[in-house]
Write a protein that binds this DNA or RNA. Structure first.
Lengths: 243, 243
DNA sequence: CGGAGCGTTGAAAGCCCTCAACGTTTGTGG
DNA sequence: CCACAAACGTTGAGGGCTTTCAACGCTCCG
């Protein structure tokens, strides 16, 4: 079925035996399709499954009192959406689809079996939640220390590499189905200022974002603007290390 | 020796058998003392041990180009400092002590043994790294969506509960050995503005921070200002739920 | 073809930063 | 125990980046 093909694809420390690959396919109980802009889970929900994203975009966010929200993460194909809900049995933020999304359900009992019998595979699952935490830290840095131009640039660098990693970016072009409002919620900016910032990047020939797609024309310059270092993505050695 | 006494203390999902407690004590190979304001590990280092903080304060941070830094986390007694370095074997940010700190070293081979033979305990270790990620998400929210007053208030709420959890806060009073510069680096503010913000909290009788100590006088109001919901700390039912 | 959502642009206001000066505390050595 | 220096804390004034508010154009889909 190959529904797990993109899991940890392109990342270091992701060597899997044949048995482990088979075991991974078998943790999936079913695959469901979620419509775009649909709330998948809410803060406080109890979980008995975790979900792996096969296709589409999903975001995780927290609401503020004033009605605005803050994205804390987004998931692309190959990402577990809420594997952290396995040890906690509970989620502490909201989850919603951005596009139509195909997600695989993974019952927690099956993960218990993996923990009990396949420690190396269990460690890889743990690793994938730790990648998430590494991304969170980088987001703290991005929002806490960079100005608007840097934040958007950093966001685009990260997304470009993550998409390339799972074979969904070619020559700096990739799907980016986020509105300027969404981008603002990810970067701690208003949609108006995101608009002005994207215009600057466009006018300087660094990157273009329009109609659900992004085109990074000058990755090196974008990375400089965003003080971006791909270290935290734990990428395999490959063409991305040249940037 | 009881060096692990504070690990996951006061958190849900932290029920341990006698054997597991003993195993936890045995993962420690040695205890070392680190002087204040001392760099413990640097971005890019390879790790063969993880460290548990027994006493003192430690912070984790990332440097920006302009010389400023962004704290991404700080650890108090009972926290693992870099357990995430076990699955990754590598750290992606800098770690330094704030005060003198007693830390326990945990060789990764011993964690391999736990993974292979004690899946329930392994799941608790995983859980503790997931608590870290939950804190990261809350920091993203804090910095991305709150103004200066809210950020500092949220920070104080979090610290108060975490310190209370390990028996180090009484009646809203606890050690806070961070300078205003440090607080700024944690909240994405300058030390000057932290100073003005603390003054406002002091003048309104909500909280006082001075000389390495904090005193939260009105937790409920502080929580309202900081839009603080303790859900993400996974606290046991207890007096903290009254706030 | 019409409407709703999204994107774009301008003007003005606000929050936080920068710069600068001075007061206070802490720690060290005489 | 005192003197001194360095680090930390405090306060004011001015400037800049981002937000807010408002209007209008564009795109996409029913």
């Amino acid at each position: 079925m190959d529904r797990m093909t993109d899991f940890l694809r392109g990342r270091r420390r992701s060597e899997l035996t044949v048995e482990e690959k088979a075991a991974l396919e078998n943790v999936i109980s079913e695959v469901v399709v979620v419509p775009p802009r649909h709330v998948i889970a809410r803060r406080g929900d109890r979980l008995h499954n975790s979900t792996l994203l096969i296709d589409g975009f999903i975001c995780r966010y927290m609401d503020a009192r004033d009605g605005y929200r803050q994205l804390v993460s987004y998931q692309i194909p190959g990402d577990f959406v809420d594997l952290h809900g396995y040890p906690t049995r509970h989620i502490d933020h909201d989850i919603a689809s951005l596009t139509e999304a195909r997600i695989a359900l993974v019952p927690h009992e099956r993960l218990d079996a993996v923990m009990a019998t396949m420690p190396h595979l269990a460690k890889l699952l743990w690793f994938s939640t730790i990648l998430d935490a590494a991304l969170h830290r980088e987001w703290i840095f991005r929002i806490g220390r960079l100005d608007a131009l840097g934040r958007v640039a950093h966001f685009l660098c990260e997304t470009n590499l993550r998409m390339a990693c799972v074979g969904r970016a070619v020559d700096g072009r990739f799907a980016l189905p986020l509105t300027q409002q969404d981008l603002g919620e990810a970067c701690g900016l208003t949609s108006v200022h995101v608009n002005r910032t994207l215009r600057r990047l466009r006018e300087e020939g660094v990157a273009q974002v329009a109609r659900g797609y992004a085109h990074v024309q000058d990755f090196a310059r974008l990375a400089r603007i965003g003080e971006f270092d791909p270290d935290y993505l734990y990428l395999e050695d490959g063409p991305w290390h040249k940037v």
